[in-house]
Write a protein that binds this DNA or RNA. Structure first.
Length: 480
RNA sequence: GCCCCGGUGGUGUAGCCCGGUCAAGCAUGUUAGCCUCUCGAGCUAGCGACGCGAGUUCAAAUCUCGCCCGGGGCACCA
């Protein structure tokens, strides 16, 4: 399945944008929205911008810029150009000034509460009728930082009676006396999103905007018209939410601060870093996005869909490695000394390992639980044994090499195993945004010696357990 | 309160524009069974949905109207 065709899109003559606000870490939601833009960029051979919407100095921080850059790189999204809106403040000033000159905007010194009240009542304040030269004079003072934060605001002359409240003279500029991580204290008059966005989309030559529907489209259009900008196609879709993993900083931040989670990259977190640590691979995000597409319907994706796809993609490329959770020692009487070479994958050529065995094994106590004394089962890829003693200290005897059809097969490790701990993540939040106390479980066990050859970041399959990513030596995280 | 946008199985999505081929497809989930050396892999089968009510029509998931429910906007956030 592909994404639906775009209206008015001519191959080679399109431009898209990824517009993150660097005020938090990149999340799955961003990843999916960016992927949609990227898929269209590829489909229409267009230009793709990475544009940081950093017009609120109080919110942005350098580490967030990095989060987005590395997340985007990880996803395999190639963008053509990068810029920060804060690079273009002078340019946005030019357009702001023009609006003032045209009489499409005015300087207002009403306090916040009054503006709000009048907006609700649908009546204009006395500043709306100020003559252009007065507005321009105040403007110059604002640009020159003569006024204190909160004293003035530049408002767009919309329609104070409009049933759409966002058209009732919204703010275009406000004073923020706070150093910006990139421009420092050079500017204190900052544009708001609506103007900055219109100017940027125009100057970047954006033809198609695909974004989630939390923006004020009509307002944008009005500003664009006032500035005589080209028309662009705007396609809005609802946010990408996952069940039990709200992207809301309000909910997530406390977990990080109270150390309920290990950090923003905790494998339970809906951040790109969290996904990565959990062993979700970039292709999964891309394909999942392609599968669910975008709609205006409110939705809450179930992790099982993403996880299932992830397993499907991991399956052909992951080494199979024996893992014995909750191990119990099993001595096999009459066992021949054996050196077996077992391929890492049943079909694909992922190499093999050789294991030396001499009758001393560890198997999972859960496997043995259903096995009665006297029954025969098989040590996978090795030989058959018969259980001669059940219970907490089991024993068995060698029963031949020939594979018996329909026999149970168990994984095993020898004395030469490695201790491993597997972290099993679950959804962070339960119904009603309450933290899921059982969201992180740990399983200890023995893995075959070859795990020591793995590098951090490698993902393997522990058969009958799941796909696990090596997070640090001896520690794995279950992908799902 | 006002404005905009939505409502297809547990979840997500296809179909809706241009009514019949839809006793609704796919995926995930779940249940049962199979499994040639993975019972969180693979295979097979089953389960399960058009928000409600009217109307138009030979025929409605698809068109019209009303209602109900959900989301977003109404920021000196983006």
């Amino acid at each position: 399945m592909g994404l639906p065709p775009l209206p008015n899109a001519v191959k080679g003559k399109t431009a898209f944008r990824l517009p993150p606000e660097p005020s938090g870490f990149m999340t799955v939601g961003h990843a999916m929205a960016f992927t949609i833009n990227y898929l269209y960029k590829e489909q229409y051979d267009g230009e793709l911008w990475l544009r940081f919407e950093d017009t609120n100095p109080r919110k942005v921080a350098p580490k967030y810029f990095d989060s987005f850059r590395s997340g985007i790189r990880w996803l395999g999204i190639e963008y053509d150009r990068e810029k920060n809106v804060s690079d273009d403040i002078e340019l946005i000033y030019d357009y702001g000034r023009r609006l003032l000159q045209q009489g499409d905007a005015y300087a207002c010194s009403c306090d916040e509460a009054k503006v709000k009240r009048l907006r609700f009542e649908g009546t204009a304040c006395e500043h709306r009728g100020s003559p252009v030269d007065v507005n321009l004079r105040i403007w110059d003072e604002l640009v020159s930082k003569w006024h204190k934060e909160g004293s003035y605001v530049i408002r767009f002359k919309g329609d104070m009676q409009s049933p759409n409240y966002s058209l009732r003279d919204t703010n275009l500029f406000r004073i923020i006396e706070y150093p910006h991580p990139l421009t420092g204290t050079r500017y204190t008059l900052w544009p708001t999103y609506d103007l900055a966005n219109a100017v940027e989309d125009e100057t970047c030559g954006i033809t198609h905007v695909l974004r989630s529907s939390e923006f004020r489209n009509e307002l944008q259009q009005l500003i664009r018209d006032a500035l005589k900008f080209r028309r662009i196609e705007v396609i809005q879709f609802s946010r990408f939410n996952f069940k039990g993993a709200p992207v809301s900083k309000r909910l997530l931040r406390p977990l990080v601060e109270k150390k309920v989670v290990s950090g923003w990259d905790d494998p339970r977190m809906p951040t790109v870093e969290g996904l990565k640590r959990r062993g979700i691979i970039p292709q999964t995000i891309r394909q999942f996005t392609l599968q669910v597409g975008y709609t205006k319907t409110e939705h809450e994706y179930d992790w099982s869909m993403l996880l299932s796809l992830n397993r499907k993609l991991l399956d052909p490329v992951s080494k199979r490695i024996f893992f014995v959770p909750d191990p119990v020692r099993l001595k096999v009487e009459g066992a021949p000394r054996r050196k077996v070479t077992i391929p890492f994958h049943p079909e694909k050529d992922l190499g093999s390992r050789t294991i030396d065995s001499a009758g001393e094994f560890y198997v999972s106590s859960a496997d043995l639980k259903g096995i009665a004394k006297g029954s025969v089962f098989r040590l996978m890829e090795l030989y058959n044994v018969e259980l001669t003693a059940a219970g907490p200290s089991p024993a068995a005897k060698y029963m031949g090499d020939e594979l018996i059809p329909n026999s149970r097969k168990f994984q095993w490790v020898t004395e030469a195993h490695k201790d491993v701990r597997v972290t099993v993540p679950d959804v962070l939040f339960l119904e009603g945004d309450v933290y899921n106390e059982g969201s992180l479980k740990e399983v200890d066990g023995f893995a075959e010696e070859s795990v020591s050859g793995l590098k951090v970041g490698d993902i393997v399959q522990f058969p009958r357990f799941g796909f696990c990513r090596l997070d640090s030596p001896g520690r794995f995280i279950l992908s799902g």
